[in-house]
């Protein structure tokens, strides 16, 4: 039921009078401050407050539900909220009270599995907030944890008739991949996920394609595992 977002945006841009939005911001700012501990930096909610807030929203901290919220309010890190993201996110969604937010989040989580655009937004943001401060890449073991979260309920499953891609991907990385996961690899994995869900035969793949090396090597790994007839490209 992401129509709410549209509605909120419409009401925001539709009205000439900006006062309601400004008032919302004020209300939201106060809500935000409620979770901020005195030791937290300005305009920032630390780990403790973030956990409390998420729990107040009724979000499961053990699965992808948490990631949906973190994207919604553009949390800079897992376990840290920024005021800007919080206020902007909820203003856009038109939810100025905890109760409204709670029901909005519940709706988002329900449609998470079926709404590919939402899933993609959350997927991409996950990389941003999962990195450690100042790092450009995600350590492999962390990346594997987040992939697991994203590709399990309430997230989308990455399994087709013949292949459990999520499991195969993790298996391949554990066996062969020694480096960390950079942004390109993270995002391209999503593109690859989309393609495999449409065509599990991998006929979309070509060695000359724009895939990063890790995907090329995974394709070879997957084909061998599945016992596909090797095509001519590999013999070259």
């Amino acid at each position: 039921s992401n129509w709410k977002l549209d509605q909120a945006v419409n009401s925001y841009f539709g009205g000439n009078d900006q006062a309601p939005a400004a008032r919302d911001k004020d209300v939201l700012g106060k809500l935000f401050e409620k979770y901020r501990a005195s030791t937290d930096e300005k305009d920032t909610v630390g780990v403790e407050g973030a956990m409390t807030y998420l729990t107040d929203l009724g979000v499961n901290l053990e699965n992808a539900e948490m990631l949906v919220v973190l994207e919604l309010i553009q949390a800079p890190f897992v376990g840290e909220l920024s005021k800007q993201g919080f206020v902007d996110g909820w203003t856009a969604a038109g939810c100025d009270t905890l109760a409204k937010q709670k029901s909005y989040v519940a709706g988002q989580i329900r449609s998470f599995k079926s709404d590919l655009a939402l899933f993609k937004r959350v997927y991409k943001h996950t990389f941003i907030c999962a990195k450690d401060k100042g790092q450009k890449a995600l350590p492999l073991e962390n990346a594997l944890v987040y992939w697991e979260l994203l590709f399990s309920p309430p997230g989308k499953s990455w399994v087709t008739a013949s292949t459990n891609w999520a499991a195969l991907w993790a298996e391949y990385l554990n066996a062969k991949w020694t480096k960390s996961v950079n942004k390109d690899m993270w995002n391209q994995t999503f593109v690859f996920f989309e393609k495999t869900m449409e065509d599990e035969s991998l006929s979309f793949w070509s060695e000359d394609g724009a895939w990063p090396g890790v995907i090329d090597e995974f394709v070879a790994y997957a084909k061998e595992k599945r016992g596909d007839v090797p095509d001519t490209m590999e013999t070259d």
Binding site: D184, E207, D208, P212, G213, D216
Partner: peptide, 14 residues
Amino acid sequence: KIPDIKKCIDILLE
């Protein structure tokens, strides 16, 4: 070789 070029592209992306 194409895979080698792609690896270089990966590095430059990174």
